[in-house]
Design a protein around this nucleic acid. Structure first.
Length: 217
DNA sequence: AACCGTATCAACCGCATGGCT
DNA sequence: TAGCCATGCGGTTGATACGGT
């Protein structure tokens, strides 16, 4: 292993400390737990190993499929990918990708390229999304009523203010009632402060929902 | 049995980001 | 506004396990 392996005693001290004081405040954890480890090590050990509900063992086919899909959409954003796989850590996903999938997929791609040979296909890599600082809440996302149809999902934001970056500024509802062609670079200028239930909103989740939705058809 | 190459994965490192003063 | 500090993340390292020769 890279670095000094954690002992059972250290694990117990860390677990006890987290149980007592909760997560966060990692700079205090080594002192509170009585560990001779830096805060980063403590955090990593907890997140990747000691946290409850961590799933161990083989990745299922469903998980592997999802990882591949998500990686196609997000690139190496392991924490986001892991967030979609209950019980899996970013480190797990990253290791699995590096050990299993990257080689496998590279081989497949090379094979595919050889087959296509001259029939080049341009693949658009995930583009960075420009997010305004003011955008700090999650617009709730609901699938269309007719779940069986192939229509795209519609964010349930009244008077939403989502703008297409390359087309000047347009209001979503006024001019883009549906989300067709959503793979373009999109800027969320401001979102109505509506969804108070979760408090913290990750915009990437929302965009990912849309991308996954489109991808599934 | 000894050696070697490869796979696996826990741990570390460095950087980016955000909050606070 | 600048500087400092804590946190989080992705990349990388290196010890161990395991299979093949």
């Amino acid at each position: 292993m890279g670095g000094i392996a954690w002992t059972e005693e250290e694990d117990n001290l860390l677990k006890k400390c987290i149980r007592q004081y909760g997560e966060g405040k990692w700079h205090r954890v080594p002192l509170l737990a009585g560990l001779k480890r830096c805060r980063k090590s403590c955090r990593l050990r907890w997140l990747n190993y000691l946290r409850p509900n961590i799933k161990r063992g083989q990745f299922s086919h469903e998980e592997v499929d999802l990882i591949i899909k998500l990686h196609r959409l997000l690139g190496n954003r392991w924490s986001l990918i892991a967030g979609r796989l209950p019980g899996r850590t970013a480190n797990d996903v990253k290791n699995y990708w590096n050990c299993h999938l990257s080689k496998k997929l590279n081989a497949q791609e090379t094979e595919q390229n050889n087959k296509n040979d001259g029939n080049m296909v341009n693949v658009t890599r995930p583009q960075p999304r420009n997010i305004e600082k003011s955008c700090s809440r999650r617009p709730c996302f609901k699938p269309p009523e007719d779940a069986g149809s192939t229509s795209t999902p519609v964010p349930c934001i009244e008077q939403s203010q989502i703008y297409l970056e390359d087309n000047g500024y347009h209001t979503w509802n006024e001019e883009y009632g549906a989300v067709g062609g959503f793979s373009t670079n999109i800027q969320f200028e401001q979102v109505r402060e509506e969804d108070e239930t979760n408090g913290k909103w990750d915009l990437d989740d929302f965009i990912l929902d849309l991308d996954l939705w489109n991808d599934s058809f």
